[in-house]
Amino acid sequence: MAMTIHCDIVSAEEEIFSGLAQMVVATGTLGELGISYGHAPLLTSLIPGPVRVVKDGGEELVYYVSGGFLEVQPGVISILADTALRADDMDEAAALEAQKDAEHALHNQTGEFDYSRAASQLAEAAAQLRTIQQIRRKARSRG
């Protein structure tokens, strides 16, 4: 059996995942990181993107988080997400729509335009799409 580490994913609204994992892959501010058993204590902030959990039995779960923090303690990974979604619940059409809207807003700037908000909307939509694509890939490799 592979070495496992306990992983908790919580958002302000609910507890998303709690259980043993072989590996957790998340998108930190400085890039993607994969964490498995024996990782050094680590504290990082997360940017919008997918969180992939490889469970004890090898099964993979993908979640989407819109930012938050990740803490690694010996034996425990905690992800404090701002909002976390089960990726299966995500709607690709809605994400595409949101991305288009945000890009549109960025191109047609008017006087009182909130640049940072539109940019963060765009980043979130793009991250959601990335998550959905990851799930697709997973489904394809399995099928």
Binding site: T29, L30, A40, P41, L42, L43, T44, S45, F69
Partner: peptide, 10 residues
């Protein structure tokens, strides 16, 4: 901890 990015900001 290891901090990413730096400790202060985080």
């Amino acid at each position: 901890y290891l901090y990413e990015p730096d400790a202060q900001e985080l």
